[in-house]
Design a protein around this nucleic acid. Structure first.
Lengths: 416, 416
DNA sequence: TGGAGTTATTTCAGACTATAAACCATGTCA
DNA sequence: TGACATGGTTTATAGTCTGAAATAACTCCA
């Protein structure tokens, strides 16, 4: 009996304020438009506290008052909303072949974006850095030109969704905000322990990095199909396969932020060798490239990516091709088993199926996928889980990346 | 953008006190003996607050002052410790064939216990209830006789670890502490949606129920091999196979408390049919009964439990029997794959291997198991995970069950 | 024996919070 | 115009932690 377990931090009166401010601000942001009484009901805070907090938020410029609502007798309620022009956040989707940077106002409305496609096979962190920095700069001047954000827009931060594991430094060891930047390990693009210090130094606001599957999950949780989900999973099926796990309403990261590597869990004791080196990985059964290779009868190799071929597969299926049908049936069967492992382990309320290939599958076979999941799951968690198609599409990754600085702002307030 | 996401509750000044009180009390309990300065360092609370809280805890009778420590110049520190005689907690291990009830003082020292073995195949909830109520009564009179707890010992609660899924009612819907008792689903003993209301009514203190694998995990997390682990898993291998997952330092329960059913995740697309109805479950590869069936060459059926046979298996292995060796090698290989799924999904710091069969395996093959896990895991999380043997043995389940009321006491204080 | 030095513990003023209740503001309706 | 209803603010009060000052209880040394 030596160490502390489940150690929570000490609390002080200041924390009470921070918690309640965040609670209220989150309500305002997600409600879009609200009123003081409505916010009071949603947050359970007393009218006095609401007044107090709202006054502060208005003074800061974070929140603005709007029109007054009609009343059936009684003083009319004043509409409250986030001040969209109070600040800007950037979100970047770093893919294997391209980088997309998007700008959002404080109401998370898209203001503009830049996409840069790479021709070479592997992009270097330096290239990515210069593209991101360039896009942020270009978008910022665009914003200045629009006049909505003044001469020097307040930038809350730049979020980066990258294709790999992002290892965050141990927070417990001192709160020295200084140079504890995350390490990025991305096998797919050949990055090993990359730090984006140079990029961070170039940018006009803090750089926050996370795994792309996780930022996508965050986007679905805040604005998409996973809204309000306390325990859930977002699975992303493309060439590769990933997942984001939500536990207790928050994105789960694990001890070193690599949690959720569902694509490399095994559902078979043998099978094709995966690019991770193991055999039997989910990715080798449901990843788009693997499915294509199978369909074409080359079960021995797993290389390259060829998303176009998926169109052929679906076309063949619709023309009654039996081989195509069997490929898709097998895929759904395997997907059901792979998802049932998530169901039995996490007992999620909802599983959201996304990714370019997953989205395509869910569009046509959602019911079959759900049935396959239930067939392999334990009865109780299987009966409870809802399987749904993702609702945000390809922009989710950048959107989710942009929520990183936004979330930080909600929790901590303005810098300093 | 409608619903609230990751909704935290509103905070008030009272919560600050509760949080800090719990933080301090937890420190005192886990330290065994401490002092005010030591507690201050551990909790980061100021000396004034420590005095304040300690005074309250002493006045309540929860904490007592002890001897004064020698000082090399300066006022000597006074030893603080939990008052073991302040209260009693009970923990019950409801197994498939027997029920064990144990009593602990507030320092979680075992005071006594009762075990009742059943002869029939399936025990009814009524039988379990009367056995538990009887044992609690008998142990209580024993405690009264000992004189350490006065004429009417304060009982904080009775924790029950049961072999099945425990579904807790939704807490969010009103804080009516009234009759929202959990539902127990235990296929193994044939319980379907059982409520222990009658038992709760008979008992002299609140009844708290959880899954046995989860209470065992809790015990390992508080007092065993999983101490101080923020992200980890405790896997329990016996006839059946279960797991408890620790995320962010707390036991993870999922949306309806059935999380952690690792025994019924699939690592094979075909294979023996499991008692859950599916094929390829981990339990059919590493569960004791399944291993025995395999060893004896009867791969077609999976029935009954015969733990004694495991001794034969190990004996044969030690005598150089090749079939026994192959059985164990295969088992370890499969266990490695099954655990690697946990590693890739949860990214745990530590995996604790327990359960009567798991313990036996870990005793002899821990290094092999760890190697097998690493072989199948992704390199980054695989390199970080530590595989360890459980350290509490068979009493862990009841001990963990007893932590349920203890934890509640730490968080909420004395009843009322 | 007593004074200096040292560390533990308590006391207390000050800074913040939330809340309840009283109070003011601004409508509708008859 | 007054009664009523609801929205929003102000204020007194009760908790809470913290930092600094005060006090307590030692050891060491002359």
């Amino acid at each position: 009996m030596n160490e502390q377990t489940g150690a929570s931090r000490k609390a002080s009166v200041r924390d009470v304020r921070r918690t309640n401010r965040a609670l209220l601000l989150r309500h305002v942001m997600f409600a879009g438009e609200t009123t003081r009484p409505e916010a009071g009901a949603a947050t359970m805070l007393s009218p006095g506290t609401i007044t107090n907090l709202v006054t502060e938020l208005i003074a800061e410029g974070t929140v603005v008052e709007g029109r007054k609502l009609d009343s059936p007798g009684g003083r009319p309620r004043t509409v409250l909303a986030v001040n969209p022009h109070a600040a800007v956040v950037f979100g970047a989707d770093v893919g294997e072949a391209q980088v997309t940077v998007e700008a959002f106002d404080l109401a998370m409305r898209r203001l503009g974006g830049r996409t840069h496609a790479f021709t070479g096979r592997r992009i270097s962190p330096q290239t990515v850095s210069s593209v991101v920095a360039g896009a942020v700069g270009a978008l910022t001047t665009e914003l200045v030109a629009s006049g909505d954000f003044g001469a020097t827009p307040t930038i809350l931060g730049i979020g980066l969704g990258v294709p790999g594991i992002v290892e965050h430094p141990d927070v417990s060891a001192g709160d020295s905000e200084a140079r504890d930047e995350p390490l990025v390990h991305a096998q797919v693009v050949g990055w090993d322990s990359v730090r984006f210090s140079e990029l961070a130094a170039q940018l006009p606001a803090p750089l926050l990095i996370d795994n792309g599957a996780k930022t996508t999950t965050q986007a679905e949780a805040w604005y998409g199909s996973a809204q309000g989900v306390e325990h859930g999973a977002v699975v992303l099926i493309g060439d590769g396969v990933g997942a984001g796990i939500i536990t207790n309403g928050r994105l789960y990261r694990g001890s070193s932020s690599s949690a959720g590597e569902w694509g490399h869990t095994k559902i078979s004791l043998d099978g094709i060798r995966c690019r991770c080196g193991a055999r039997g990985c989910v990715e080798t059964f449901v990843g788009a490239s693997a499915v294509l290779e199978r369909w074409r009868g080359r079960e021995d190799a797993w290389l390259g990516r060829e998303p176009e071929g998926i169109d052929e597969l679906f076309a063949a299926y619709h023309q009654g091709d039996e081989v195509a049908e069997r490929s898709l049936r097998d895929l759904i069967h395997h997907l059901g088993i792979a998802l049932s492992n998530l169901v039995n382990l996490y007992n999620p309320q909802k599983i959201v199926v996304g990714g370019w290939f997953g989205d395509r599958l869910a569009e046509e076979f959602l019911a079959d996928i759900a049935a396959a999941v239930r067939r392999s799951s334990l009865s109780q968690p299987g009966a409870e889980v809802v399987v749904e198609r993702s609702s945000l599409g390809r922009r989710a990754t950048a959107l989710g990346a942009a929520t990183l600085p936004l979330d930080r702002f909600i929790e901590r307030g303005w810098p300093q």
